[in-house]
């Protein structure tokens, strides 16, 4: 990954900024002075800028080759520099390394912390930092929360179920689109369904709207007796509700959902929703055979 990041950065940085990065990288080699590294880690935004990487197809392919779930196109140039610094320190003794990496987070401003959370998944033995990552979800600073929750494969692989579920519900509270959570479909569980179903009812009791994509988290693990409580949204005036519910119903085998999709198929006026209904019904038929 170091070479991939270095190549991406060199293409985007002016010679002066790149020579600063080279100096920073030299400081990661033995003997490592923690304060010097922390200084470079902090300075990356001012020296390298914050513009988004926006990879070309070739670069995307190289990143995907490292890990198919890795998505760094939205990272800032500074964030890529910081990731490269952390990845260049891995020669350090394990405890010293973990210590310095943690200090990069703890002494960081929110942009530095955001960069750290995005890079976390790439570090050796990333599971040792799980407490810091789950703690980061408690932030009120939305970009920081998004750095761990969105386009990041770390939670799906390392978060305990409780923390993963809390993160998904917080994303709903923060109006973050659930499709940005990597691997949500693989991690659904009955507790998440219960939490989001309770949230649906709480919002309805308060006379407030329900997030339109809540169904992605709610429907897959919902007990069959509660399915009728959500099916009304298949005829909701908002096409987004109908769309996400149709998509989510494609994941469960019981008859109630399938029947509701069948019934809706003939009368759905919105083409995007109609297509989602069709796709879900096909998926269900395939599962059946």
């Amino acid at each position: 990954m170091n070479e991939v990041l270095a190549a991406i950065l060199r293409k985007r940085l002016a010679p002066q900024a790149w020579s600063w990065v080279e100096k920073a990288l030299a400081a990661t080699q033995p003997p490592v002075h923690a304060n010097t590294v922390l200084g470079y880690y902090a300075g990356a935004s001012r020296r390298a800028g914050k513009q988004a990487l926006q990879l070309d197809p070739d670069e995307t392919a190289r990143v995907r080759a490292v890990d198919p779930e890795l998505e760094i196109g939205l990272w800032g140039v500074d964030e890529a520099v910081r990731a490269l610094l952390l990845l260049s320190l891995t020669h350090m003794p394990a405890d010293d390394y973990a210590d310095l990496v943690l200090r990069c987070y703890e002494l960081g401003d929110s942009r530095e912390q955001q960069s750290w959370l995005r890079a976390l998944f790439l570090l050796p033995k990333p599971e040792r930092f799980v407490n810091t990552a789950t703690d980061a979800c408690r932030t009120n600073i939305q970009p920081l929360f998004e750095a761990i929750a969105c386009e990041n494969p770390y939670p799906i692989r390392y978060f305990p179920e409780l923390n993963f579920n809390q993160m998904v519900v917080k994303a709903l509270f923060s109006r973050i689109e659930l499709k940005r959570i990597v691997g949500l479909g693989k991690r659904h569980n009955s507790e998440l369904a219960r939490m989001t179903f309770d949230y649906q009812r709480e919002r309805e009791a308060a006379g407030r709207s329900v997030p339109e994509d809540i169904w992605l988290a709610l429907v897959p693990g919902l007990p069959v007796e509660n399915v009728p409580r959500v099916l009304t949204y298949l005829s909701d005036p908002s096409p987004n509700h109908r769309y996400w519910l149709a998509v989510a119903l494609g994941t469960r085998m019981d008859a109630a959902g399938r029947d509701a999709l069948e019934a809706r198929r003939g009368i759905e006026p919105d083409t995007r929703v109609a297509k989602a209904i069709q796709t879900s019904l096909e998926a269900l038929n395939q599962l059946r055979t």
């Binding site: 809390q166 519900v169 917080k170 509270f173 219960r194 939490m195 309770d198 949230y199 709480e202």
Partner: peptide, 14 residues
């Protein structure tokens, strides 16, 4: 002393 209990935003009922 009495106790003031904060209830969570997420998963409030539970």
């Amino acid at each position: 002393l009495p106790v003031l209990i904060h209830t969570p935003h997420r998963d409030k009922k539970k």
